[in-house]
Design a protein around this nucleic acid. Sequence first.
DNA 1: GTCTATAGGATGATAGAC
DNA 2: GTCTATCATCCTATAGAC
Lengths: 192, 192
Amino acid sequence: MKTQSRKEEIIKIASYLFKERGYNAVSMRDIAQAMGIKAASLYNHIKSKQEILSTLILEVAHEFTNGMNTVVEENTFPIQKIKKIIELHIDITVNHSEGLAALNNDWMHLENEDLKAFVKMREDYEENFRKIIRQGIKTGDIKPCHPEVILFSILSTLRTLYLWYQKRGKLDINVLKKDMVSVFLDGIVNKH
Amino acid sequence: MKTQSRKEEIIKIASYLFKERGYNAVSMRDIAQAMGIKAASLYNHIKSKQEILSTLILEVAHEFTNGMNTVVEENTFPIQKIKKIIELHIDITVNHSEGLAALNNDWMHLENEDLKAFVKMREDYEENFRKIIRQGIKTGDIKPCHPEVILFSILSTLRTLYLWYQKRGKLDINVLKKDMVSVFLDGIVNKH
DNA sequence: GTCTATAGGATGATAGAC
DNA sequence: GTCTATCATCCTATAGAC
C-alpha cells in the first residue's frame, strides 16, 4: 500500500463511487472531482471509463475463480468444501470489498471480451458449486432438497455480504465464519 | 389485466428494461422505442422518468410493509412468523416480479420524499424482522447465533429470489416454499 | 501530470402542429 | 395521443499548451 500508482488511486476512488451510485450514475467528472483534479487529467492514467470497470471487476472475479479451483481440487467431503467456500467469500469480502459492488451490480456494463470472460467465470463458478451440492446429496451428507434452493440460498447470502459487513464492521471475522457455517449447515432452529 | 392504461404499460415495459440494464442505462428513448412510439409521447402519460421509478418501487415496498405488519400482528411463535415472512417474499416475487429489480438495485436513484419514504420503510421492515429473531433467541426457539447473521442470511436470499425464480421458472411454488423453509430452519446437513 | 478548450453525441424534457 | 423540432445540459474522450 506504500507506493500506490495514480491508476490504482483512480480505481479505488471510482470503486467507492460506483458502490454508492452505480457505474452509470458516476461521471468521469465525479471521479476527477473526488481526486481534486479535472476529468481530462484522468486520461493520462487510464484508457477509458470502461477500463476502470473491467479492471475492478475482473480482478475480484479471478480471486473467486482461483479460490473455487483450490476448493474443487481438495480431497475432502462436500460439507467440508462448502465450509471452505463460505470462508472464501468472507475472506474476499474483507480483503477486496471495493470491487464487490461493481461485480454484483454493474457487471452487465462490461463490454465485448470482458463481458464474455466474466459471464463464463461466473457460470463456471456456479456450476462447480452445484456439482459439490449434488455430490453431497448423492452421498447422503446433504439433505435431499432441490439443489438449486441450496445453491442460491448460500450464494445470495455470500454475494451480498459486502453490503452489511461494512455496516456492522465491528463483527469479528471468526464469529462471522462460525455463525454463518452453523446457520447454513444446521439451520436456525435450536436443538435442545 | 383487461384494461391496462397507457401509464401502466409504460411502467411495465420500463421495469423490464430497468431489470436488464438498470435505471440510469435506460433512456426515455429506449422505453419509447420498446413501445413503438417516440420519447416525447411518453410525457402525455407520465410526468417524468423519476415518476416511473418511484411508482414502480413504492408500490412493491408497500406490499412488503403491509405483509410484514400482518405477520407482526399475528399471535404466533417466532419460528412461525419467520415461515410466514419467507412465504411473503416468495408470493411477492411471483406476483410483483417486475418491480423487484428496481427496488433492490435502483432505490438510491429515488429523489427527495420518495427516497426518504423508501429508506424508512426498509429500515422498519428490517427492524421488525430483527425483533422477531431476537424474540426467538430469547425464548430458546432459535439458536443463539448473532441475530444479524440470521437476519441477513435469510433476507439476502429472499431479496435476490427474483433473479433465479425467472431462470428456473419451472420450479413449483410449494416445493420452493417447503425447501426454503427447510433449509433455513434445519440447515442443509442430512440428519440420518 | 495537469490544465483549458472543445468535439461529438446522448439525455430528459417542452412547445406546438396534427 | 402522437408527432417533429428543439433546448439546455450532460457525457466520454481528445488535442494541445504549460
